[in-house]
Design a protein around this nucleic acid. Structure first.
Length: 572
DNA sequence: AGAGGTGCCTCTGAAGATACTCCTATCTT
């Protein structure tokens, strides 16, 4: 049976929930939560590790006991401790924790004093007024429970970064126009450029915070006010997205921005570091005793605790603090570092613009080369090109190259067939300067067969780079199951490359896979996969993901000048 | 429950705002 890391993490989080409701040792609970987080961020499959008898205790936060439980879960699909806890507490009880305002203590009270085990039971008890008399509850909390279950508000949705951007822009314009708003910034996972965000975190500096809060909750798209104090407020917008606002004095803006940008794990780790240096940190500044020594800018805050500036995309407590202390932070790639784009479509297949239009637009955006990679014929839904169509396109490229002042590369996004062969005859593949291999079919193959299929495709001497290596669509379609580490190692051996697809719905490779490729010395190509002239805008999302993966200019293939690029992708 | 220093023990993830009920639990990064 196939067990993903996320499945193991779910079991650990369930155990942590149950232990928390029981009131177990908080450090034990944290150990399970940390292990779950480690597993979710891990680029390797622990099931594979167990099969290969790798030492799980080398993973951070995994000791002998948890290693044993991981083995148990990936081999048996279940965990004795969880089953034992389920005999003490009903399995459904974790549902109750999803209701906003209910944590472990109150869930325990609901269970012990009213035998409430499910959301349905909770709803009925609340409707019958049976909650308000439990110590710690009252009429208000009873009503809030009813409302939360009615609006299904319990499960918090996540939004793709690009969609969050469009929701944020109107609100941002409204707030920026207010006379009492001095500085304003969207912080949180949005600023860290996570591929999805759960809510918007906005930081404002103002000398009249209550007034700003008042104006904030009067924004026309606000449909619900979750909390409203003198310095912070939480609302839900018409689109369903939650927005948290924090208003501070100008002198504290940097500290507040830093705090609100997170991540939580990063903040905690940095505060521990500050503590060790005899300093106290909060969203109002860095303090030595009662003396505020820094707060106005993020840079000042970093300097006060003895660290260089750490870019938001790195703030995930994934080694950035140690790297900062050692002076070994990466010099993260920037959009302007890109010299070209190696994946783009035209009207010849499923794009919307002509070859000339795409070329002109790429040139306008400062790129010095663009690979034209329309689909190959077996992807009929995209009107893929056959040998004849490609030949015609190659002639057209020759003409434009003589005329336009941007180098167009002759390429194709070639279907990788189920058996790993490529969807074009060798005599055509040999005439192409770049072959972008892609999987668009048979997503459900087993991990072993899917991996083998891709490895075989890479073995073709003409293969240049693997497009959207996981095939996922964020929040819509799971990635196909492949051994990415093996693919990366194979790319290194074969001298080919992997794509980081910049479309905000794809963004694969993921950040952790980027790190893996970097560690193995495999260059990544950050490509737009543009289907129209507007899609070159997406490159910034790809760059953001690359930055989250610690990539530097030297780690990215299409930062090379055209001459070096051609030599890097040329076949032996 | 893990990690680290020693052979079993100690320490381990910060800090503040808000809502709500009665003193703290929950939520946020």
């Amino acid at each position: 049976m196939l067990i993903h890391n996320a499945d193991v993490a779910i079991v650990f989080n369930q155990i942590a929930d149950l232990l928390e409701i029981k009131g177990d040792n908080p450090f034990r609970i944290r150990a399970y939560r940390n292990a779950a987080r480690t597993l979710n961020a891990l680029a390797f499959s622990v099931q594979t590790m167990v099969a290969e008898k790798s030492d799980l205790t080398e993973l951070p936060g995994i000791g002998i006991d948890l290693a044993g439980k991981i083995s148990e879960i990936v081999t048996t699909g279940t965990c004795a401790l969880r089953e034992q806890l389920h005999r003490q507490l009903p399995p459904s009880i974790h549902e109750l924790l999803t209701v906003p305002g209910l944590g472990p203590k109150r869930v325990k009270a609901l269970y012990q004093q009213r035998n409430i085990q499910t959301l349905d039971q909770l709803f009925n008890s609340a409707r019958n007024g049976q909650i308000r008399n439990i110590p710690g509850f009252g009429i208000r909390s009873e009503q809030r429970i009813l409302e939360a279950i009615r609006t299904q508000q319990s499960k918090k949705k996540r939004y793709r970064l690009d969609l969050a951007e469009s929701v944020a822009s109107a609100l941002l314009r409204y707030l920026q126009a207010l006379p009492d708003v001095k500085k304003i910034e969207i912080a949180g996972s949005f600023r860290r450029r996570q591929e999805t965000v759960g809510d918007l975190d906005i930081v404002i500096s103002s000398s009249r915070p209550s007034l700003v809060i008042q104006q904030f909750i009067q924004f026309e798209d606000v449909t619900q006010i979750l909390a409203q104090g003198t310095t912070r407020a939480s609302v839900v917008l018409r689109q369903g997205m939650q927005v948290d606002l924090r208003v501070v004095a100008s002198v504290s803006f940097g500290a507040a921005l830093y705090y609100f940008t997170g991540s939580k794990a990063h903040n905690i780790a940095v505060r521990v570091l500050a503590q060790k240096r005899g300093l106290k940190m909060n969203e109002y500044g860095v303090f030595s005793g009662t003396q505020r020594i820094a707060a106005e800018t993020e840079l000042a805050v970093f300097q006060a605790i003895g660290l260089p500036y750490i870019e938001p995309e790195l703030r995930e407590n994934r080694g950035e603090i140690a790297a900062a202390q050692a002076g070994k932070l990466p010099q993260l790639i920037q959009l302007a570092d890109l010299t070209g784009d190696l994946h783009a479509h035209t009207k010849a297949s499923d794009g919307r613009n002509s070859l000339r239009e795409m070329a002109m637009e790429a040139k306008k955006r400062g790129l010095s080369y663009l690979a034209i990679t329309d689909h190959s014929s077996s992807l009929t839904i995209a009107h893929g090109l056959d040998a004849e169509g490609l030949t015609r396109q190659m002639d057209e490229i020759d003409q434009l190259n003589a005329e336009l002042g941007i180098k167009l590369l002759k390429g194709c996004e070639v279907e990788i067939n189920e058996d790993g062969s490529l969807d074009l005859p060798d005599n055509i593949l040999e005439r192409l300067e770049i072959v972008v291999g892609a999987v668009h079919s048979k997503f459900g193959l087993s991990r072993e067969r899917q991996t083998k299929r891709i490895l075989r495709a890479m073995d073709h001497p003409c293969f240049t780079l693997l497009a959207h290596p996981s095939g996922r669509l964020i929040l819509e379609r799971e990635p196909y199951d492949v051994d990415m580490h093996q693919i990366i190692l194979h790319a290194r051996q074969r001298g080919c490359f992997l794509e980081l697809n910049a479309q905000p719905s794809r963004l694969d490779l993921t950040d952790t896979h980027c790190m893996m490729a970097k560690n193995e010395g495999v260059l990544i190509s950050v490509n737009s996969d543009a289907h129209s002239i507007f899609d070159f805008d997406d490159l910034r999302f790809g760059i953001a993901q690359a930055r989250r993966g610690w990539l530097e200019k030297k780690d990215v293939l299409n930062t090379l000048p055209i001459k070096q690029l051609l030599s890097a992708i040329s076949r032996p």
